[in-house]
């Protein structure tokens, strides 16, 4: 598996798109910090960008890479290599190269502007961890979609729809539900509904940093326990990890049964 990972990774870090992605983050980081040298404020702006953009990029790259390397996959399938190793290896290749672009692309500008002397280092680390987990989760989900759909156009459409659903539609339905069932206690529901969407989970991590004052204005004891302590941070990170593990496990499961 490590060999596959290595080759996928090197294949990708030499592709033009990885550079575009890397450049985008470099530019974003430098421009943000140039306009506003306050590192913490830049981190906050980036968080807003990252929770929408990273899933989109992860989804697109994941699907694209899967379909693009289909024949290569077949070549590998004829080699004495385990199937799961091929797919997990490729998956890790894509997601890790994306994570690397993210870390380097944002890391360089921030280090340049004095990250290590700044108090924003914790927030920045949280930002990178969130970004990395989101990349891992969405690339894995994209791989799943591609594995279930032979048709490239279909797979692509489903993947984009999935992203749109997670990024926008889900929250719309969520809010609608809250409006309709206004008279019931909703705090447990809200927390569970949040756990079921990795984008919402990452958003919670941002809220915990940014809007803690507003969050604590709510009376519910469950919210208070969740947001007022480290429970919120750890359970959100934990749930996000589950969002990585489950799709990856399904790649493993599905790849064993699939015909090529």
């Amino acid at each position: 598996m490590l060999k596959i990972l290595k080759y996928s990774f090197f294949d990708l870090i030499r592709s033009r798109w990885s550079y575009v992605y890397l450049l985008f983050y470099l530019l974003l980081g430098f421009v943000l910090l140039f306009l506003n040298e306050d590192l913490s404020k830049a981190v906050i702006t980036l968080m807003n960008v990252i929770i929408i953009l990273v899933p989109l990029i992860g989804t697109i790259f994941g699907v694209m890479y899967y379909y693009d390397s289909k024949e290569f996959t077949e070549l590998l399938l004829a080699q004495p290599v385990k199937r799961s190793s091929i797919f997990i290896g490729q998956y890790l290749g894509v997601s890790l190269s994306l994570v690397m672009s993210l870390v380097i692309g944002l890391g360089l500008p921030f280090v340049f502007y004095g990250l290590f002397q700044s108090s924003a280092i914790f927030d920045f680390t949280l930002l990178l961890v969130t970004g990395a987990l989101l990349t891992l989760a969405f690339t894995a989900i994209a791989f799943n979609i591609a594995l279930y759909n032979e048709n490239k156009i279909k797979g692509f459409s489903y993947a984009i729809l999935m992203w749109l659903f997670m990024a926008v539609i889900y929250d719309g339905l969520f809010l609608m539900f809250l409006v309709i069932f206004d008279t019931y206690p909703l705090d447990k529901f809200s927390l569970i509904a949040t756990m079921l969407n990795p984008i919402d989970l990452s958003r919670i991590l941002i809220l915990l940093k940014l809007d803690i004052a507003a969050l604590l204005g709510y009376t519910g004891a469950i919210f208070k326990e969740f947001f007022g302590t480290n429970t919120g941070l750890f359970s959100a990170l934990g749930a996000l990890m589950i969002w990585v593990v489950l799709p990856v496990f399904n790649i493993y499961r599905k790849s064993k049964k699939k015909d090529f």
Partner: peptide, 20 residues
């Protein structure tokens, strides 16, 4: 306004939908 009506909705703050 929404949050004044439904305090739990605060959990949706900064989501793309709310921005829209």
């Amino acid at each position: 306004y929404v949050v004044n009506q439904i305090p739990e909705a605060i959990i949706l703050m900064r989501s793309l939908f709310v921005d829209i």
